[in-house]
Design a protein around this nucleic acid. Structure first.
Lengths: 237, 237
DNA sequence: TAAAAAGACTGACATATATCATAAGAATCC
DNA sequence: GGATTCTTATGATATATGTCAGTCTTTTTA
């Protein structure tokens, strides 16, 4: 179901302004552009598997991708969701190791593949760009430390409330008081983000609904009370 | 209780071979060396606090430092332990943000402080070195993903067994069949590494002891059955 | 469009682990 | 060296959450 669908040059790519390529000089954008390859992906497709060797990096033009690890009990833990402008797989490339996680399309996506060489060449010849990448990497590390701390110190209810708020921030469409999360995730996927059992998510979501914190609109979740969720997400805040 | 205790040049530093400075050319080692400052720290001292601005990086010459985050419930989560040769605080510096965690001395330490400028200058003028730092950063990110997955998908018992094995790897002194963890940690600190309550650690440790997986030698833990712990640490492995 | 498969939901139940309380030892302090 | 504080230990108890089982609903397939 994948296929090349034309090859808009990076110079004209609307997603570029959201990406780490945003202020790359013309010359380097061209190097990248000449080598990249835009591919369309359908929901459910795998972009790469944990344990395999990275051959380049991915830059999301549109769509949503989940980055996850498969635990030894077979369950998956979603590390984060990526969307337009996000880079994927550069950490494995820079770490010179195989992928430490897997990537699966959550919402139909158009994604550019940039071969290792083009990326690394640009990196080496452009220190500011290299620094920006490293900065992103460092930031992600801090985020992961936060996630680890939350995972060990917060309850499932708190974590679910927090995940909903984050989804609201990233995929929310404002509508007066409420905010609709414009992204379809299965209960199982939400559970994988929170790090819990699917049934627990279902139960807690209906509880949140009963308490008027959220509402369901078809397959989408609408946040009706951000403040209430925020209070729930962190008892001490 | 801290104090300068002479300033061995990096060129002669025995810990350097364990560090990211290991194959830095003479010229750059000197730049670093001329600017650094060796300081002795006692157990319990704080190296830096989460939320404060990094002014440079630390390189551990001897001793052990715990890197931790304080959760909103007041409990601490130990992210990892650092020892000789390890760099501290470079992630905040490269991420151009305040420290996302705190660092406390766990075992009396001698630590060099390298001011921001000297470090960043070396970085900019030495791409291979920059790449090695970035590689370390990427690797750490993968480790954190693993920790997050373990935290959400494994039981406390499994995680404690795993932490003991890791401590054995990093601080173990071999003695025939057994391996003594040559590092004094309180039960509370072990709990902070595992992400659980102190009482749970105490209970599980006595259980492990009863099952002949470990033994206690004064304040130190001796691993008597690595294989048994490994089996316990991951039911499915 | 009927059948099959997948997903959402609800209930019953088991249990790992947090919390609280108390006490014994060990370390620290005047 | 006795008092005080911190750490380790153990027991009792509560509960959040995982697991299993079953039903209903939606989506996919043929």
């Amino acid at each position: 179901m994948s296929g090349h669908s034309g090859n808009t040059p990076c110079e004209l790519c609307a997603s570029r302004k959201f990406s780490l390529f945003s202020d790359l000089p013309e010359q380097h954008v061209c190097t990248i552009s000449d080598n990249k390859n835009l591919i369309s992906h359908k929901k459910g497709q795998i972009l790469y598997y944990e344990g395999t060797k990275p051959l380049g990096i991915f830059c999301i033009n549109s769509g949503v991708v989940k980055i996850y690890k498969t635990a030894s009990n077979g369950k998956e833990q979603i590390i984060h969701l990526s969307q337009k402008g996000d880079f994927l797989g550069y950490s494995a490339l820079l770490g010179e190791e195989n992928y430490t996680n897997s990537a699966m399309i959550v919402e139909d996506a158009k994604i550019c593949f940039i071969p290792k060489e083009a990326f690394l060449t640009t990196l080496s010849s452009n220190t500011p760009f290299f620094k920006r990448i490293t900065k992103a990497l460092s930031h992600e590390l801090g985020v992961m430390e936060e996630k680890l701390t939350d995972a060990t110190q917060k309850s499932i209810r708190e974590r679910l409330a927090f995940v909903l708020l984050q989804l609201g921030n990233s995929y929310g469409v404002e509508g007066g008081e409420s905010q609709k999360i414009d992204l379809v995730l299965s209960r199982e996927e939400i559970a994988s983000m929170v790090g819990t059992a699917t049934e627990s998510v279902i139960r807690l979501l209906s509880e949140f609904k009963k308490d008027n914190l959220i509402a369901l609109e078809g397959k989408r979740i609408v946040i009706k009370d951000r403040r209430g969720l925020a209070r729930l997400s962190d008892f001490y805040a």
